[in-house]
Amino acid sequence: MGDVLVFAEHQEGHFPKTTLVAVGAGLELARKQGGACVGVVAGARADELAGELAAYGLGKVVVLDHPALTGRLADAYAQALAWTVSRLGAETLLATATAAGKDLMPRVAARMGAPMAADVIAFNDDASVVRPMYAGSALATVELQGKPRVITVRATAFEAAKPVASAAPVEKLTPEFDAAALKMRLVGFNATKSDRPQLTEASIVVSGGRGLKSAENFKEVLEPLVDELGAAMGASRAAVDAGFVPNDLQVGQTGKVVAPALYVAVGISGAIQHLAGMKDSKVIVAVNKDEEAPIFSVADYGLVADLFKAVPEMTTEVKKLKHA
């Protein structure tokens, strides 16, 4: 009966904001479908995490208990989640379109023979959904026919769920699947180390592009501003391809999508593929020496200047403001 099952992904022992967004979207969809919203947790520390998740207004939280679910590997998780959807009779399986959500959800959909829509930004009342295509140059209204169905949501398009007074019941299930058929092994994880806020969680993002010219300049010119603002750091594809910063800082169509209160684009031209990842930010600032750069067409405040002069000045001005 219209139930939504939300896959509650966790990283290093906690739920990132993107997971709470999945819960927020799941609750909204369940209200529309006239069903309950159920969270599903698996993997390391799942019991404890289920207790945390139970505070966010869900009808129920399910813990999947199976030794094959320790590392988040797609072949095992696809089987376990498909089993859970069928066991609970859920109408929709939902996750956020993070790298893990994108990796996993299509595989579950295939296992169930279910239709899927990726990166959904809105649920319509008639059960159709809206999703961007062509790097955001078009918004598609899409119908998913038959049940169950699978949806990933865009993290910037829905509100994160908030804790409520009462806790949902937690139920433990042992999914039945063919563990002998599993062939994938997790060898290791090399985390990008940073003391800064996560790109997808920060209220301010400062991104650098090819205009920064080197990894050293990212460090010496951009990072002081990033840290003075308490911001997360992002980058254009050109800056990542050139090896100035790690891959997971890429903002855009084929990187991360962000919508902070303030996005500062430094030495970024504003290609459509980059805009696809940041144009829903509340306030956009562009610093570029080329006044014709397309980034200015989406910027609330544009500064035509040499970044090597302007960025250190900005750092100083922000510092002054804080001590004023």
Partner: peptide, 19 residues
Amino acid sequence: KVKLRTLTPPAKRQAGRKV
């Protein structure tokens, strides 16, 4: 099973001002 009903252009963001 997935039917594309219609495409619409996204809302255009207004350019602000130069400082």
